[in-house]
């Protein structure tokens, strides 16, 4: 992440992605509509993309799957998920997740 041209190009592309998605149907001619099948795929893509990012980050180590009781991030993720599902509180979720991770890291 220290390569400046790489980061600048990344940011230009990411900005284009934001504009292209948010403004998409505001800019297209009114006669163009979203086909039902595309609508359905679009609806599920964000949840799947977030899942792939989270699981590849938490359940992997050194490019290998890491599903083990020793995976501290996994326990932190599970605890945070439970807290969020119960309370819908972002602050509580972050606090519990980080606390579980730190506790496991220090005491195991």
């Amino acid at each position: 992440m220290h390569d400046l041209p790489y980061m600048l190009a990344a940011i230009v592309g990411l900005t284009a992605v934001t504009v292209a998605t948010r403004s998409s149907f505001f800019m297209l001619p009114a006669r163009i509509e979203l086909p039902g099948s595309v609508e359905r795929a679009l609806r599920y893509a964000p949840a799947c993309a977030l899942t792939a990012i989270i699981t590849q980050g938490v359940f992997a180590r050194d490019h290998e799957p890491y599903v083990s009781v020793h995976n501290n991030q996994m326990w932190a993720l599970l605890a945070a998920s439970l807290v969020f599902a119960k309370t819908r509180s972002m602050t509580g979720t972050m606090a519990v997740g980080m606390a579980v991770f730190t506790a496991l890291r220090l005491w195991t």
């Binding site: 990344a10 592309g13 992605v17 934001t18 948010r22 998409s24 149907f25 609806r43 993309a49 990012i53």
Partner: peptide
């Protein structure tokens, strides 16, 4: 990187529509 961001942002296409 861009395709991943696009996938996460696809919900905005539905909002725009």
């Amino acid at each position: 990187v861009w395709v991943t961001a696009l996938l996460v942002n696809l919900r905005f296409v539905i909002f725009a529509a």
